[in-house]
Write a protein that binds this DNA or RNA. Structure first.
Length: 770
RNA sequence: GCCCGGGUGGCGGAAUUGGUAGACGCACAGGACUUAAAAUCCUGCGGCUUCGGCCAUGCGGGUUCGAUUCCCGCCCCGGGCACCA
């Protein structure tokens, strides 16, 4: 027997799979499909680190099991290759992003193949490839044609370091999510996608899918639906004098507190609008308003100290007709609700804090008022429309031209797609904050596809979210150059049956891609409304010490080194064994040793195989059936760590045997194959099989055979374990109670006292109460 | 502040319709094999103990024959949201 040599056998089986196209999947309508999906990686220059294989291996394990269960499994891979790091690298070095990306993808591909994943490489996609982004552009035009893409001049978050407009989602605590620089506000014409029109569908759709609880809750919070009433308060510009001309609308979720409203609080933004339409406020008030607005423009971090100023006007509470003051405050925000509230200090902590500071009355007075009694019922969402343009080079060009003659934006016809990214000399955005495309006059100045007259191209590009918003559709039909994907193929493959990814993507990527899919479903281009039937999420792999792995901290572990030292199967199995899949774990190289020893044992077991044996080992048979049951159930529940520990228990038991039946060894290899596929294939061939193990049937267990013939029962007295008895499984309750009472230890503890009660829990214990 | 997770040996972690706490693995200790070492194999491994037991799953109570598990009140760690009216 040779020694277990991962280097040799892993290369061998990877070649075999590639040559035999083992994992290339056909659209076979006679077979039940299973679509398992990972979040496709961004091909960074650093290559894979050991965090990547966690979700990949998990879904590979599931995909391999499904194949053995006879499913037609689509397990695709691709690269989300538009993105800032490559562009920043281009700015620094002048190297074209397309070239750098090509190199990085080659490196990622090598590493992923080295790990033995059962991806269908024939379907690999790359979002920055014009053949792919042709359809990203085409899909964007569908939004445009349906009025869901529009341009809007609005203050945007601006990162002065990256020189890029950021979506609200990319701003963390007032700073750029990528580089940490404090974000400024700037006015820019931006392409927007009207995701708010889909707020209700995005919310309702969550009821029909099986998402990990945390993901569902985070999506719901982000959409942020709240039911409330809009109530009109008429204003008196001169207190005490009714004029019936002016009013303010407030939003409240608690109209029943209206009798306790003692002032109206207005945001600086709304007050500014009043000034613009002729409100004559005092200089002091104007100064206050400008001051608040300036602070908000500078930073998203708001003052936590509440301030305000009496506006010098009053409002009439429609419930009790009382005249109450209007205050302009910093704690009411212009972009929330109507930008004005009725303040009820008796009920609301913030209103109370403000009222106490400025000595405003606090009145507790609740009514049975409903939403419609003093106003009209409205439903509000926190969700905002999606800023869909970036003033950058490395993204999909937006396929629109501006034509004065035609009166605005004209989409490119399909035969002019893809609109390719032109080569530019410099990748740096202009000082005006425009994409470098804006400097390409020849490219910018074009003909209007509608009227043939002179027109200018849009120079913004799409955000990095664009390509990943529909990639799961492309996998169904990746080489189609007539459509983004054919209806027939989408019908067969969609929805994704199981999508696993990081918690960091459960809000934005998931929401955006669901939005695209629901929209495409609405216009008849996609057969299902919800793209993902099931969504799970993995925990991060942290560096030793609990920190995130990052290049700057120099604590990144490269899988190349681990594979060179231990082999891919050990790395895969160890990553699955480390800890609970949905929790963060620290990388610890020591743990690899134990898994390598385990795989060595499996390898060495082949020495014990004896085809002819007289007596069946019943104990081992029972353990085998228990293991088959546990491993199967654990994989389905992503409890990979306990699945592997069950396999270790089985292998340890087999190791104690003098001889081993092939009928026991081969199911072990099948159970192990999703985790350590190369080793399993090799040993499978040692057993004399000529074909791959990949499509062999997943072992089944017999429930009767999982039951042990003898069981050990604990005997408790007043809840404390005092003895154990071993009985045949079929022993009657009465007999067991007798046996328990007959125990010497029990007699000693009873000291002659009569038991009050005897509780028997089948297969577990006997509890005697005295 | 609100919403999710989580807290168990030296370490990673098992155990859930309440039923023998510490599976499996690492590290460590002793032994076998070896001239020796590595590798491998065997044994031990929560703490205390007068060797009868006692104490232990973040802390304090409660329910129960029995609580890591359920209830009440707290503390700490991780993540998300946040003057959202």
């Amino acid at each position: 027997m040779r020694k277990y040599n991962p280097k040799l056998i892993e290369k061998k089986w990877q070649k075999y799979w590639e040559k035999n196209k083992t994992f290339e999947v056909k659209d076979d309508a006679t077979k039940e499909k299973f679509y398992s999906l990972i979040e496709f990686p961004y091909p960074s220059g650093e290559g894979l680190h050991v965090g990547h294989p966690r979700p990949f291996t998990a879904m590979d394990v599931i995909s391999r099991k499904k194949r053995m269960e006879g499913k037609n499994v689509l397990f695709p891979i691709g690269f989300d290759s538009f993105g800032l790091p490559t562009e920043n690298y281009a700015i620094k070095t002048g190297k074209p992003p397309a070239e750098v990306t090509k190199k990085n993808i080659a490196n990622f591909t090598r590493q992923l193949k080295m790990l033995g994943y059962s991806f269908d490489w024939s379907r690999a996609i790359d979002t920055s490839n014009p053949k792919y982004y042709k359809w990203t552009q085409w899909l964007f035009l569908q939004f445009f044609k349906h009025g869901l893409a529009y341009k809007k001049n609005q203050p945007i978050n601006w990162c002065p370091k990256d020189k890029i407009g950021l979506a609200n989602e990319e701003v963390v605590n007032g700073c750029c999510e990528r580089c940490g620089t404090p974000v400024e506000k700037r006015n820019k014409e931006q392409w927007m996608l009207a995701i708010t029109k889909y707020a209700d569908k995005l919310l309702a759709g969550l009821k029909n899918v099986d998402y990990i609880e945390r993901a569902r809750v985070q999506q719901e919070n982000w959409i942020g639906k709240s039911e409330g009433a809009e109530i009109v308060f008429s204003l008196r510009m001169i207190p005490g004098q009714a004029d019936d001309k002016h009013s303010v609308t407030v939003f409240t979720t608690r109209p029943d507190t209206i009798f306790g409203a003692t002032f109206v609080a207005v945001s600086a933004e709304l007050a500014k609008k009043w000034l613009e339409v002729g409100w004559q406020a005092s200089e002091e008030v104007k100064k206050y308003i400008d001051n608040i607005l300036a602070r908000r423009r500078a930073s998203r971090e708001e003052d936590l100290e509440k301030t305000g100023i009496a506006a010098g006007i009053t409002a009439i509470n429609p419930a009790n007709k009382k005249e109450i003051p209007v205050w302009i405050t910093n704690y009411v925000l212009g972009d929330v609700g109507t930008g004005a509230i009725m303040a009820v200090p008796a009920d609301d902590d913030r209103d109370r804090e403000f009222a106490e500071k400025y000595n405003l009355p606090i009145i507790a007075n609740y009514s049975k008022a409903g939403f419609e009694d003093f106003g009209k019922k409205v439903i509000r969402y926190k969700l905002r429309d999606w800023v869909f343009s970036r003033q950058r080079y490395w993204g999909e060009p937006i396929p629109l031209v501006n034509c004065l003659h035609c009166g605005g934006w004209v989409p490119l016809p399909e035969n002019e797609l893809p609109l390719k990214l032109p080569k530019v000399a410099k990748y740096q955005p202009t000082d005006m904050g425009e994409s470098p495309l804006a400097t390409m006059e020849k490219w910018v100045n074009t003909k209007c596809p509608q009227c043939g007259g002179p027109a200018k191209r849009e120079t913004d590009t799409m955000p990095n979210w664009a390509g990943s918003s529909w990639y799961f559709l492309r996998y169904a039909d990746p080489h189609n150059d007539k459509q983004f994907a054919s209806q027939e193929k989408l019908k067969y493959w969609m929805p994704v049956d199981w999508y696993n990814g990081g918690m960091e993507h459960v809000v934005l990527h998931l929401l955006y891609s669901r939005f695209w899919n629901i929209f495409l479903h609405d216009i008849g281009l996609v057969p299902v409304s919800e793209p993902y039937a099931k969504r799970t999420a993995h925990g991060l792999i942290l560096a030793k010490g609990g920190e995130k792995m990052s290049k700057s901290k120099g604590n990144v572990v490269n899988p190349d080194e681990v594979v060179a030292k231990y082999g891919a199967d050990t790395l895969r199995t160890y990553i699955m064994f480390m800890g609970p899949f949905d929790q963060a774990v620290e990388w610890d190289e020591n743990g690899l040793v134990g898994v390598k020893r385990f795989l060595d044992k499996v390898w060495n077991l082949q020495e014990k195989i004896a085809p002819k044996i007289e007596k069946i080992n019943l104990k081992l048979q029972t353990l085998l059936h228990q293991t088959i049951q546990k491993v199967g159930e654990d994989i389905e529940a992503m409890r990979f760590n306990t699945a592997i520990s069950a396999l270790m228990v089985l292998v340890n038991e087999m190791f104690k045997q003098e001889i081993l039946l092939p009928t026991h060894y081969s199911p072990l290899l099948k159970l192990l194959s999703p985790f350590a596929p190369h080793l399993a294939e090799e040993l499978w061939s040692v057993l004399g099989y000529k074909k791959t193990l990949v499509f062999e049937s997943w072992p089944e267990y017999n429930l009767e055979l999982t039951k042990e013939s003898m069981v050990t029962l604990a005997v408790q007295i007043n809840g404390k374990v005092r003895d154990e008895i071993i009985v045949a499984a079929e022993t009657s309750e009465e007999e067991i109670k007798k046996l328990a009472l007959a125990s010497e230890k029990v007699k000693k503890w009873l000291e002659g006292k009569e038991p009050k009660k005897i509780i028997y829990v089948k297969g577990k214990l006997v509890s005697i109460v005295v």
